[in-house]
Design a protein around this nucleic acid. Structure first.
Length: 849
DNA sequence: ACTATCACG
DNA sequence: ACGTACGTGATAGTC
């Protein structure tokens, strides 16, 4: 039937039942039309040679019980008929089973099958020429998520055929998808799992399995899809070009299903697609020393997928590797033109440096970082956000154009959309290169940008490239040790509470503690009882089991986030190369992701141990340096409070001195309690003081807390005046400002909501302090990084943790590095109080702290 | 996707 | 009367 073509016939099968149900959710009144629109989209894009829609023969016992739903189903059948789209069903078979049968027969006959259904059970069918698309709600409305065998492997870690077991297990209350995948990975099938039930390590899981064995096995039957129906596709199911045209001509509901529909803007925005070598050569030859470029390399899997280049309003190119025009050639050319051109603007310089290989000081402008300075509160600085904010243009977003697909894939499947998406990138960069420098200047942030943020990009890139060495085996041992103790604690907790439950579930834990065990003082949150550490700690003296739970929490946190979490990021070079983000925080700090290397445990002994696996490479040691109370010193400087400044001039222990001055006792008579209180007040000041916050932090009454604050302000009147001034300034201007001109908008100050406004005031007090400290650290980082390179040293900064820098130091460079690091940090800013730096040397991060 | 929790400065 | 300390990111559970 499929003919003897070389190319596989493209067969699209739509699960009428489940798609109706899915569309019904969003728009009950015209669910059928939504499905028809989806079909029209497929036909319009010429994505199918054969198309059919399937329905279960029986309705009654199935899921389609609601009347309205049934109506929609009938309407969909009618509409399909009128468009001569094949409607298939067979007695005794569910819709999903028809799909399974058809996929099987078509696949053996050499078809390429796309199944569209909301029924996850169909994922079992995925194989080389069978793709399943599952609709889900994305940011931009409904999107189809596609599953190839590799996608299944990536998401579940299993072959598609084994998914049945996973789906059956997750029906049991208490087993999540992750656990289910792990069990199936280990035991292959449900049957084998129950045959080896005694081997299951977790007592809790074992209990659940025993209790729900029957349900699970029944569920497995439901998840077993028959694929033996007699229906076959034949030429009556094929779609001819004439038929498509006819369908398209039929007046029908406007398409608001995903994809497409954005090409009209191509009219006034021409992107020239270039795939020809000599044409590319001609374009590159136009990049001269007096040129200004907008440039963006699309980098996927460490190779260039596309080069977007803009030389002027009407000269925007999307250059794609093809034939002689290789990805490697484009890489070389990109580097060459970016070095030759008089000025280059990019959207995100750090991401481009692996290919552009520029050095600090190059005439490059980073539009994303500039936009971040202009408004650090945005959550994206993508091309369409920049266009909307600074070019007064509304252009389709990447998701509008190509959904969640990679650019590389979109170039194959949705060429036009991908080309405009790529084109926009350099176009927006180019235009931002005209607008944003002016904008920065107007807002007094040009020095901040050119002297700090721009050079910092290179230092962050250097730090990411360096990465940090982590001892894989030792980390594994650490995780294994935790596992043993976790399982012991788990047992004890089950014994003490007399129940077997998921300790990680705050819901279950709260019910066990406060309902079953009737422990008093259960504080309710929105969703139930709070089981947060500070709540449990208060119960610990009376209920020993609570201590076990706290220990369990600590250990599982260490295991999942750190032992297992970090292990997943160790590369083939034995190092972790995290990402340091420059455009995330509201205050100007950098942030760290994948993994977060700025929250590695240190406060608790057991957690701190993790730092032993962070080690310098052969021939190196770590030098770690951190600022001592940089934020309080910034406060002393910015407020100009003479007494606080004097305190720092003599200071050994600032918290003790504060206590001495605030409580009017000689320094050597300050009690540890007084010191602790003074320390909390110091923190409170930096956070934007409030008596409520302080009382929480110190477990004292609000009244006592306000007294402390009052005394503090009496002692340091300059600080009070300064903080009041910050709030007033932020109210007037609408933003708070750091010493180096960094701004943080504080719209909350205008809020009519008391709580919001209060928050705004604290932000107005905290942001300039936290922001100035961040500025100073950035200056230090740049200088240290540049000094290392200028002096020809091989040592490199490997981590920044807000007030701390870690340098992997070659042993023969140790003295020089120690000196340079502390000196640059101390002198990064000239304040009324000195900046003090503590430096340590060690064979691991643990040792160097 | 959202909430609760907890790791860091 | 109101009811939170400032700034982050990852994980697990729940819906």
């Amino acid at each position: 039937m499929m003919g003897e073509q070389m190319n596989r016939k493209r067969i699209v099968l739509i699960d009428g039942n489940s798609m109706i149900a899915n569309a019904f959710y969003g728009m009950p009144s015209n669910a059928a039309d939504a499905v028809i629109r989806l079909i029209k989209g497929i036909l319009e894009r010429r994505e199918a040679d054969y198309l059919a829609i399937t329905f279960s023969a029986e309705d009654g016992g199935g899921t389609l019980t609601e009347k309205a739903l049934l109506q929609q189903k009938e309407r969909l059948k009618e509409l399909s008929d009128s468009l001569s789209i094949s409607v298939l069903s067979e007695k005794g078979y569910e819709s999903a089973e028809l799909l399974a049968s058809l996929a099987k027969s078509c696949e053996t006959e050499g078809g390429d099958i796309q199944i569209i259904s909301e029924d996850k059970r169909l994922l079992q069918l995925v194989r080389d020429h069978v793709t399943v698309h599952i609709p889900s709600m994305g940011e931009e409305g409904l999107v189809l998520k596609s599953y190839s065998p590799a996608d299944i492997e990536g998401e579940f870690g299993l072959e598609p055929v084994k998914l049945k077991g996973v789906f059956s297990l997750t029906k049991a209350n208490g087993i999540g998808e992750k656990t289910a995948c792990q069990l199936i990975k280990q035991y292959e099938s449900i049957k084998n799992l129950f045959d080896h039930l005694e081997e299951v390590e977790s007592l809790r899981i074992k209990e659940i399995l025993k209790a729900t064995e029957k349900e699970i096995k029944e569920e497995e039957k439901r998840n077993t899809l028959r694929d033996d129906c007699s229906l076959r596709l034949d030429d009556s199911n094929s779609i001819s070009e004439a038929e498509i045209r006819q369908i398209m001509d039929m007046d029908f509901v406007p398409a608001d299903f995903p994809d497409e529909e954005n090409q009209e803007s191509l009219e006034d925005f021409p992107v020239h697609l270039v795939t020809d070598f000599s044409e590319a050569e001609t374009i590159f030859s136009k990049c001269l020393p007096d040129s200004r470029l907008g440039l963006h390399l699309v980098i996927e899997d460490k190779a260039i997928t596309a080069l977007s280049l803009c030389l002027g309003q009407a000269q925007c190119y999307c250059i794609i590797p093809q034939g002689f025009l290789t990805s490697e050639y484009l890489a070389g050319k990109a580097e060459e033109i970016s070095k030759k051109a008089g000025h280059v603007t990019v959207l995100d310089l750090k991401s481009q440096l692996p290919f552009l290989k520029l050095e600090a000081g190059s005439p490059v402008f980073d539009a994303g970082v500039a936009a971040y300075l202009l408004n650090p509160l945005k959550d994206s600085y993508a091309y369409y956000d920049l266009a909307a904010d600074y070019l007064d243009m509304t252009i389709p977003s990447r998701a509008d154009l190509i959904g969640k697909s990679s650019i590389g894939r979109a170039l194959e499947e949705k060429r036009d959309a991908a080309v405009s998406c790529i084109g926009y990138m350099s176009y927006v960069a180019y235009r931002c290169g005209e607008v944003l420098p002016e904008e920065l200047k107007k807002n007094g942030m040009d020095t901040l940008f050119y002297e700090i943020e721009l050079p910092l990009i290179y230092s962050l890139y250097s730090m990411e490239s360096a990465g940090i060495k982590v001892e894989r085996d030792r980390l594994k041992e650490y995780g294994d040790r935790l596992k043993v103790r976790i399982m012991e604690l788990e047992q004890k907790i089950y014994e003490e509470t007399g129940e077997t439950f998921n300790i990680n579930s705050p819901k279950q834990l709260g019910e066990i503690l406060f309902d079953h065990m009737k422990i008093p003082g259960g504080k309710k949150t929105k969703t139930g009882y709070s089981t947060a550490a500070d709540v449990l700690e208060k119960l610990a003296p009376d209920y020993p089991v609570v201590n076990l739970i706290l220990d369990y929490r600590q250990l599982t946190k260490l295991k999942s986030t750190y032992a297992d979490g970090l292990a997943a990021y160790i590369g083939p070079d034995e190092r972790i190369h995290g990402t340091f983000n420059q455009t995330i925080t509201a205050t100007g700090r950098i942030s760290s992701t994948e993994p977060n290397l700025q929250n590695i445990p240190v406060r608790m002994e057991l957690g701190r141990e993790i730092r032993k696996v962070f080690v310098p490479k052969e021939g190196c040691v770590f030098v770690d340096a951190d600022y001592s109370q940089i934020e309080l010193r910034v406060l002393a400087h910015m407020s100009g409070d003479q007494r606080l400044i004097n305190a720092y001039k003599q200071a050994e222990d600032i918290h003790a001195i504060t206590a001495s001055e605030v409580f009017h006792v000689p320094l050597n008579e300050v009690t540890s309690l007084q010191r602790r209180n003074a320390k909390a007040v110091n923190f409170g000041i930096v956070y934007g003081i409030s008596s409520f916050g302080l009382s929480e932090g110190l477990s004292i009454t609000r009244k006592e807390a306000s007294e402390y604050i009052e005394k503090y302000f009496e002692t340091y009147p300059g600080v009070k005046k300064f903080l009041d001034g910050l709030v007033a300034e932020a109210k007037e201007k609408g933003y708070a400002v750091s010493m180096f001109g960094r701004r943080r908008p504080v719209p909350e100050l205008k809020s009519s909501n008391f709580m919001q406004r209060n928050f705004g005031e604290r932000v107005a007090m905290n942001s300039p302090i936290q922001g100035t400290a961040a500025d100073i650290m950035k200056i230090a980082m740049i200088r240290v990084d540049q000094a290392l390179k200028k002096q020809g040293l091989k040592s490199r900064i490997v981590l920044q943790i807000h007030d701390e820098l870690l340098i992997e130091t070659y042993r023969d460079e140790l003295e020089q590095v120690k000196e340079l690091l502390t000196e640059e940090m101390k002198h990064a800013a000239d304040l009324l109080v000195s900046l003090e730096v503590e430096a340590n040397v060690g064979e691991s991060w643990f040792d160097a702290k």
